[in-house]
Amino acid sequence: MKRADQKIAKAAELLKTIANSTRLKILLALAQTDALNVSYLQQQLQIEQSVLSHALIQMKDRDILARQRRGKEIYYSLADPAALKMILWAMNRVEG
């Protein structure tokens, strides 16, 4: 596989990761602050803990999110603000 093809495949995987309403909700919530803990995200977004954990891990593994432990709590933040620009672009393209 050519290098360009590899980059395209990786980009497609990255886009697939965020192309999910639950993950988009998480990203938009994190975009409004420096970092949020899992408990706060679960309460604010009304997402089941297992679904939330799975989504957070997927996005962290693809370097979309950064994770930091503070005592017993784990906080997540956007790893790259450029991701937010893409999400906001998509949101602005939708009518309603």
Rank of each mutant, 00 (worst) to 15 (best):
L88H: 04
A82G: 05
I26P: 06
R69F: 02
S53Q: 13
Q46H: 12
M91F: 05
L56W: 04
E48C: 04
R62M: 14
R70F: 07
L36I: 04
G96W: 09
I18C: 03
K85P: 00
L65S: 03
A66Q: 10
L88Q: 11
L52P: 03
K16L: 12
D63L: 14
L15R: 02
K7N: 09
K10M: 13
T22C: 09
R23Q: 04
A82Q: 12
I18V: 15
A79G: 12
K16P: 00
R69P: 00
L88G: 00
R3I: 15
S50A: 06
D80Y: 06
L15Y: 04
Q6N: 10
K60G: 08
Q68T: 14
T22D: 07
R67N: 01
L45V: 08
G71M: 03
Q68I: 12
S77I: 01
I26H: 08
Q58P: 00
A9Q: 14
D61L: 12
M1A: 15
A9S: 13
A83N: 04
L24P: 00
A79Y: 11
R3S: 10
L45A: 06
I57L: 07
R69L: 08
G96K: 15
S50M: 02
Q42P: 00
R93Y: 06
Q49E: 12
K72M: 10
L52W: 11
L84I: 14
M91G: 01
M1P: 00
N20E: 13
N20Y: 06
A11G: 03
K25G: 03
L27V: 14
E73R: 11
S39F: 11
A83V: 15
D61S: 11
N37S: 01
E73W: 07
K2M: 06
A83M: 15
A29F: 13
Q68P: 00
T33E: 15
I74A: 07
D5M: 05
Q42L: 09
Q68A: 14
Y75G: 02
